[in-house]
């Protein structure tokens, strides 16, 4: 798992410290930092498996991670993405259950590991952090419910358009301000949208033909955001 040693700073100097851990006091950040592990994961490497015993919290310092659940037929379903500053595995720690999904690095990623005991102790002693956890969970729930509605109610085209919008919202654009800042295979987009790879290829080709998007290998350029939103039939 550990590929190379990198210079990830302590929590009080972290570039992502405005996110989850910003409510910790300096002494609390030091406690977290003390026995924090730093690991490098190559693209495609698994950080934790669905069903494994949850013994730590993972904080994504730099990179992109996808969370997937395995279906009955062995097919993966992408349920969530994580970017810089996001924490992973917290729900399993809080509910004292095994990891609910498999976390896989979508590109070379640098991840900090914080032990379960330290995380739960800091949460217990810090009401503001508990509240932040609750807000995170609430946001996750909202996302999960929206995904349920999308899968149950939307057509394949609407779901794929929605998936592209979600990717753009989560990861933003590259410097050109048009290319989504993540490379996804057609089968990964299919997993997100809950459909087949064949339907995904067909739908992306249709969107490309209408110049709503532009396909550039695994890169996807959004040419017409308004039209893409219309295709997704989004409620909000």
């Amino acid at each position: 798992m550990k590929r190379k040693s990198i210079d990830i700073p302590s929590c009080d100097n972290c570039k992502n410290s405005k996110d989850f851990f910003c409510n910790l006091s300096e002494p609390e950040k030091q406690i977290i930092s003390e026995k924090k592990g730093d690991n490098f994961y190559k693209k495609g490497q698994v950080i934790f498996y669905e069903g494994n015993h949850a013994n730590g919290l993972f904080c994504l310092y730099d990179g992109k991670v996808k969370l997937t659940k395995l279906g009955k037929d062995g097919k993966e379903q992408i349920i969530r993405f994580s970017k810089d500053g996001d924490i992973l595995g917290y729900r399993s720690l809080l509910s004292n259950e095994p990891y609910h999904a498999t976390a896989t690095a979508m590109e070379d990623s640098y991840i900090c590991t914080i032990s379960k005991e330290k995380f739960l102790t800091v949460i217990e002693d810090n009401p503001k952090l508990s509240f932040k956890v609750i807000q995170l969970l609430s946001k996750d729930l909202k996302g999960a419910e929206q995904h349920l509605i999308d899968v149950a109610q939307k057509s394949v085209k609407e779901r794929i358009a929605e998936s592209l919008l979600l990717l753009q919202t989560t990861f933003g654009y590259l410097a050109d301000n048009r290319t989504i800042n993540i490379q996804m295979s057609r089968s990964e987009i299919a997993d997100m949208a809950g459909t087949t790879t064949e339907s995904t290829i067909r739908t992306l080709a249709q969107l490309n033909e209408k110049n709503i998007i532009e396909l550039n290998g695994k890169n996807i350029v959004i040419n017409d955001m308004k039209e893409l939103i219309k295709c997704s039939n989004s409620y909000d």
Binding site: D73, R91, L137, A144, V151
Partner: peptide, 25 residues
């Protein structure tokens, strides 16, 4: 109370993910 809410939210997310899986599979 925080702990109770955390438990409730965790259970709801788990159920919702399960429901989504139900639809797809």
């Amino acid at each position: 109370f925080c702990k109770q809410i955390i438990e409730i939210l965790c259970a709801r997310i788990k159920l919702t993910d399960f429901k989504t899986k139900n639809y797809i599979e």
